[in-house]
């Protein structure tokens, strides 16, 4: 088959071809296709370069200090990215810790446990969760989750753990409901569909014979998952988790509603903060074109792009078909 297809373009130069013009059509079509493909590469390159060039004044002004400076001081025109970078990383990591076990459970449910009539509806429902626009998560988080956290979750945690040495700091502060932890929960809910869908898809690639052999030896469902399915799909599972991380890092609207918008690092999980995406969304309207402030936001955008690119690239490499533990 491939020989036939490969031979087809060659025939356009064949002198025996009766029709005229079709060779030209082929060349033009191939050129448009290839050009569009190259456009995608140009697009990625342009995004990186644009953000970097936009952030250059801030990088020049603050140097490497931009990465570790926690000041965000518009009156003095001093901007540091550390708070936002910290907020981005900590919320994404907490979101992963919360969402990976749940996603794993959902994937097991969808591949091994659920009766077959239930698999499709539940699978579809989880996928629909991924389709809900990010701003809706933000509004829901603000209207439902924040009061719930402020009333039922944070006060008992602060009362019971706030006085403990070492970890007490994590549970200190006032229970406003907004803050790092609430943002992490919203992010966790948002990335569950991505991680669980990837896990389900890779679990389904495990040859049935392997699983049947284990069941035949008397293994329980959990033992099959732990000793057969998980080792077989380990690399792809990590890839799915990275995909979720990549999504969490750049999530904007949902976080903006619940993070609390404060430019300082607090040790408490319940303290307010900012992520790169949320500070860009919140500060942009008051950043005039050409200002150092706007340049700092673009610099943060560039940093976010680099982090996301690395995470997503890793995820793609791990999820490549044929990669196996």
């Amino acid at each position: 088959m491939s020989e036939v297809l490969a031979a087809a373009p060659a025939s356009k130069t064949s002198p025996k071809r009766p029709k005229r013009g079709s060779g030209k059509g082929d060349a033009v079509f191939a050129l448009i296709a290839k050009g569009s493909g190259l456009l995608v590469l140009v697009l990625l390159g342009a995004i990186i370069v644009t953000l970097f060039v936009g952030g250059l004044p801030a990088f020049r002004e603050f140097g490497a200090n931009f990465l570790v400076n926690t000041d965000w001081d518009p009156p003095h025109d001093i901007y540091g990215g550390a708070v936002a970078i910290y907020g981005t990383l900590i919320t994404s990591v907490i979101a992963l810790v919360l969402s990976v076990p749940i996603s794993f459970g959902i994937a097991i449910f969808l591949t091994e446990l659920a009766p077959s009539w239930l698999r499709r509806p539940v699978g579809t429902a989880v996928e629909l969760l991924a389709a809900v626009p990010s701003i809706i998560f933000g509004m829901w988080g603000f209207a439902v989750l924040v009061p719930f956290m402020a009333t039922y979750v944070e006060p008992p945690l602060i009362d019971n753990f706030g006085d403990l040495p070492v970890i007490g700091d994590l549970f200190s502060g006032a229970p406003f409901g907004t803050g790092i932890f609430t943002a992490s929960i919203v992010l966790a809910i948002m990335i569950i569909p991505f991680i669980s869908a990837t896990m389900r898809d890779v679990f389904l690639t495990v040859p049935a014979v392997y699983k049947e052999s284990a069941y035949g030896l008397g293994s329980t469902t959990w033992e099959v998952m732990r000793s057969i399915v998980l080792p077989y799909t380990r690399v792809s599972v990590v890839g799915g988790v990275m995909l979720g991380l990549g999504r969490a890092l750049g999530e904007t609207m949902a976080v903006t509603f619940v993070i609390g918008n404060a430019n300082r690092i607090t040790p408490s999980l319940f303290g307010p903060g900012n992520t790169i995406a949320s500070i860009v969304a919140l500060v942009f309207p008051e950043s005039p074109a050409g200002s150092l402030k706007l340049s700092s936001l673009l610099a943060l955008g560039f940093i976010l792009f680099v982090i996301s690119f690395i995470v997503l690239a890793l995820s793609r490499l791990l999820l490549r078909p044929g990669v196996r533990a």
């Binding site: 953000l51 750049g250 995406a277 976010l304 792009f305 996301s308």
Partner: peptide, 26 residues
């Protein structure tokens, strides 16, 4: 083709806010 597929997949999950910033700049 592999490179384009890879880059396209990255764009698929890239933070949409950065695409906004990019278009703002250009």
């Amino acid at each position: 083709g592999d490179v384009i597929r890879f880059v396209s997949d990255i764009l698929l999950s890239a933070p949409s806010i950065l695409i906004g910033l990019f278009v703002y700049q250009i």
